[in-house]
Design a protein around this nucleic acid. Structure first.
Lengths: 145, 145
DNA sequence: GAGCGTATGTCAGGATACTGACATGACACA
DNA sequence: TGTGTCATGTCAGTATCCTGACATACGCTC
């Protein structure tokens, strides 16, 4: 019961962190030439798939705080890649959408990131990929409450 | 070829980040009462398993930069949880080891983290756990060069 | 209508991590 | 010998992210 973690190389948690760090580093390196950080890309990707989301929803989707997403949105808006509603249609949430320029940047970035993900999983069969995804989702669910 | 990432919920990369974020948040919450951050715990855990490692080796093991690990080591040393050699036996690397106090803190922290990892993977069979770990290691390897 | 809980946007402060740079020590090789 | 390369420790500056806090807006309950 008071047992420790054990050999790190045998630990799922450690290996999970290792894979996430490798993915983050690879994305960072490939997005840098496009002038995007990983959180900025994440913001664009989510907005491309679900236009009109609020900053708080984007923050949850990108796994950062509202405050961090706030800063990301300010930067992207200043570059003209997205536009936020000036007034809230209901409540306080300000819907945000991509501009045409934002969609163009996203198209490049998304293709780049897709390449990274393909390289990451190329040694796995399609079935193994889907199994891995499902197991990871189960792990995330088990910790979320 | 210029295809994008596609639906995020079907993406291995996105789900990987989701699981890593959940693990990080859970570890952060459980280590806070012990007065440890995640990088600090990682440093102690690695040192516990492999005494005498240098700061640069610790940084690679914890997936941070040498500079970040340097700051972590200063903090832990000031709290008396580890001791760094004053002079380098060879080269410039300064071997670091846990103190008795460090080992006591690590024992608690490691048990706590083991509980988090157990909770994360409790819906998986032992075989599925090992398969997940192996697939994650393959993903990390595919991106490391 | 009043009170409570929740969600959102935003500001301020501090902690944390990274990039860039420099000096030192070890090693390989011409 | 000396030169180039690499790894390490460390310092400085910047960027990023988080915690804490406050005000506003909606829904629910009494």
């Amino acid at each position: 019961m008071t047992q420790g973690v054990g050999d790190l190389d045998r630990s799922v948690g450690y290996t999970l962190k290792q894979a996430a760090a490798a993915l983050r580093a690879a994305m960072d390196a490939e997005l840098r030439p496009l002038g995007l950080t990983v959180p900025q890309y994440a913001c664009l990707e989510i907005l491309g798939q679900r236009p009109g989301m609020s900053a708080a929803e984007l923050a949850r989707g990108a796994f950062v705080t509202r405050q961090s997403m706030h800063a990301v949105l300010l930067g992207l808006a200043e570059r003209g890649l997205l536009a936020r509603a000036a007034t809230a249609p209901q409540g306080r949430a300000l819907p945000t959408e991509l501009t045409d320029a934002g969609r163009r940047v996203l198209e490049q970035a998304s293709a780049t990131v897709a390449g990274v993900e393909r390289r990451m999983t190329e040694t796995l069969t399609p079935a193994a990929r889907e199994r891995l995804r499902a197991d990871l989702a189960a792990c995330a669910d088990a910790l979320s409450p």
